[in-house]
Nucleic acid binder design. Structure first.
Lengths: 340, 340
DNA sequence: TTGAAAGCGCTAACAA
DNA sequence: TTGTTAGCGCTTTCAA
C-alpha cells in the first residue's frame, strides 16, 4: 500500500510537503505541487483515512441506526441520508436493530469503537436514551430520526404523527365510520403515542365513544410472526353491531399484515371493511395506488437529519436544539369507502 | 476519550497488559485481568478501532456498493449482507451508484481511503472492471453480487437470469402469447444479456419469429424520468395484428413503470395485455400477489456474498473462484392470462 | 506473566 | 516555501 513517504521519495520532497499538497493547506510552490501530483497519479496513491482519523479525531464516518432497511420507509430514509452524507463528504455505516434494544446496544458499541463522528438513529424505545447518553458522553452528536424519546434534548426530524392520525380519522368519520379499530405499534415508541393521541382526540372532537377493545398494540416481531391475525380475529369476533367498519393501521407493515389477515379471513377491502395507514406501501403506489395513507417524506427525513448532524460537527456553534416536524400528505385512495 | 493508558493507570499495570486483556492474547494472571476489566467497566472504555486498524491493517469494515437501496430488491440484499457481516464481526459502509459509472468511481475512492477489508458490489457495467482491478491491486478482495462482468475472475453470487427468463417466456407461450415484447435493462449489465438470451432462446425453441422492434432497452435514469411510456407507445402504435399481447419487463422497476404507462394509456392488465417480470414487487406481494414474476432470494445474495468475502479475508487459502448461481422461483399470479 | 520500545500513516507545531 | 519532530491509540517484538 502506497504511503505519503513513497510519494515523497518519488517526488524528492518531504512527507510534509506531500501532506500539504493533498490537503491544499499551507503554501506550496506550483512546481513542487505538480511534481507531487504527478507522483500521486503514477503510484495510484489514495490517502489513508484511518491514519488521518487517528490524528485528527475525525473519521468522516457517520452511524445510521434504523429498525429495518427492508422496510421501504426506512430504505428511502437511508437513501436520503446516504446521499446527503456523501454530498457533505461523509461515509455511512448502516445498522438494523429490528426494534430490539440489545441489538441496538450492540450497534452502539460498534459505532463507538468505529469512532464515528455522529449518529443518526431511529431509537427502539425510550430506553435508548441511556445508550444515546453514552455517545453524548464521548462528545458524539446524535440526531433522532422518525421518533423522539422522552427526556431527549437535541435535534430531531420527525413526521407529524398526531396530525396524520387526526386527518386519517377525520376522513373515516366523514365517510360515516363510527366504529374504528386502531392497531398501533408499541407505545414505547413516540410515533405510536402520537398516533394514539390523534385517534383519541378525533373521537373526542366528534363526540364518539372510545371502545378500549378497539385499540390494540402489536410489535415488530409479532408482525413478522403473523400475529396481526389474532388482533383481527378478536375484532371480527365482536357481535355484528359492535364490529368495526374500519381499521386504522399505525404503519405500513401493520397495514400489510392486516390486509393479509383480512384476506385469509375472507374479508374484502374496502367492501367489507375500510383500512387506512401511515406510510406509503411502495413501490406499487406508483402504478396502483390502493391504500388511503398518511404519506411521509422519508427521503427528506434522512437528508435533513444528516444535515443537522453535520452542522453540529462543523459549526459546533449551534446552541439551540432544532426540532423539525414534517407534515404527512394524506392520499385518499381505494382502501376506504363511505358507509350508510 | 478513554485510552488503554487511562485503564493501565487505573489498574496499575502497563498498557500492554490492558491490550492483552482486551484481546485475550498472551497470558495474564486471573487477578490482574479482573483489575483491568474492572477499570474498563468503570471508565466505560471502548477500544479504538481506528488505532487498531492503523496497526493491524484490518478495519473490520466492508464496502457494499449497490445501484439503489430504495429498490426493494437491493434493500433486501443489503439487509442480508449487513446481517451476515455483523454476525462475522464486520461493519458495512453503504453506497448507491444509481447505475452511474462516475458515482461508482467516486465510491471506489471512498472505500479505498476508508481501507475497507473487502467490497461487495453490483457493478454498473462491464467497465467497472477497471475500478475493481484498482481494489485488487491493493489486495482488497472483491465479490460481485447480482451481476458479473466480462473478464472478471473471482467470486460472485448471481441469480439465474437465463433460467428465469426461459421459464417466464415458456409460461407466456403456453398461455398462447406469440407476440411478446421485451423491455430490457441496458445490455452492458450481465443480467440484461442473460435475460435477452433466455428470451431469444425460448422463441427459437418454440419456433417463433423474433421481431426486432419488440425488443427495447431502457436504463435506470430513463425509467426514473418516466421514459418507459415511450417504449410502450411504440409497441401500441403497431398495427393491431402485430401488436404484442404480452410484455416481459426485465426487472421490478421496469415492470412498475410499464404498469404505470399502460394505465396512462388506458390499457388494463391482464385484460388487454399480460405482463411478467423479474424480482418481486414488495411488499405488496404479501397481501395482494399480482405480478407473475421470477422471484430471486435477494437476502441470500447478500448473505452468501458477505460469507464469500469474509472467507477470503480469513482463510486467504481459497484457491478456486466460487461462482454461485441461484435459481429464481417462478410465481404465476394475476398479471397474465391465456389468449385465444 | 508483565513491561518497554518502536512504529502503523498521517498531520500539528515549530524550525529553517 | 519546505522540512523535522513528535505523537494520535494501539499492537508487535523483544526483554525482563
Amino acid at each position: 500500500m502506497v504511503t505519503i513517504y513513497d510519494i515523497a521519495k518519488k517526488a524528492n520532497v518531504s512527507a510534509m510537503t506531500v501532506s500539504r499538497v493533498i490537503n491544499n493547506s499551507g503554501k506550496t510552490k506550483e512546481s513542487t505541487r505538480k511534481k507531487v501530483e504527478q507522483a500521486i497519479k503514477e503510484l495510484g496513491y489514495v490517502p489513508n483515512s484511518v491514519a488521518r482519523g487517528l490524528i485528527s479525531k475525525q473519521t468522516k464516518t457517520l452511524g445510521l441506526i434504523l429498525p429495518d432497511i427492508s422496510n421501504p420507509f426506512f430504505a428511502k430514509l437511508a437513501r436520503g441520508a446516504e446521499d446527503k452524507a456523501h454530498e457533505l463528504g461523509y461515509r455511512v455505516i448502516l445498522s438494523n436493530t429490528d426494534e430490539d434494544a440489545s441489538k441496538e446496544l450492540n450497534y452502539m458499541d460498534m459505532v463507538l469503537s468505529a469512532r464515528v463522528d455522529g449518529v443518526l438513529i431511529a431509537p427502539t424505545s425510550d430506553h435508548s436514551l441511556e445508550q444515546i447518553n453514552r455517545l453524548r458522553a464521548q462528545d458524539i452528536p446524535v440526531v433522532l430520526i422518525d421518533r423522539t424519546i422522552e427526556g431527549f434534548t437535541g435535534d430531531y426530524v420527525l413526521g407529524d404523527s398526531y396530525e396524520g392520525s387526526r386527518k386519517l380519522m377525520e376522513h373515516l368519520i366523514e365517510q360515516g365510520h363510527h366504529n374504528i379499530a386502531f392497531i398501533n405499534g408499541p407505545s414505547n415508541i413516540s410515533t405510536a403515542r402520537e398516533r394514539l393521541r390523534g385517534y383519541l382526540e378525533t373521537l373526542r372532537l366528534n363526540e364518539l365513544p372510545v371502545y378500549e377493545h378497539y385499540i390494540t398494540e402489536i410489535d415488530f416481531k409479532s408482525i413478522q410472526a403473523g400475529d396481526t391475525k389474532k388482533n383481527i380475529e378478536q375484532l371480527l369476533a365482536l357481535p355484528s353491531t359492535k364490529r368495526p367498519t374500519a381499521i386504522f393501521a399505525a404503519n405500513n407493515f401493520i397495514a400489510i399484515s392486516t390486509m393479509r389477515a383480512l384476506k385469509e379471513l375472507g374479508m374484502k377491502v374496502p367492501e367489507d371493511i375500510s383500512v387506512v395507514c401511515f406510510d406509503e406501501v411502495e413501490p406499487v403506489v406508483y402504478f396502483d395506488p390502493f391504500f388511503t395513507v398518511a404519506s411521509q417524506p422519508a427521503q427528506e427525513f434522512g437528508r435533513i437529519g444528516i444535515q443537522f448532524l453535520v452542522e453540529r460537527l462543523d459549526g459546533k456553534t449551534i446552541q439551540k436544539d432544532r426540532k423539525i416536524v414534517l407534515s404527512p400528505d394524506i392520499h385518499l385512495r381505494k382502501s376506504t369507502r363511505p358507509i350508510k
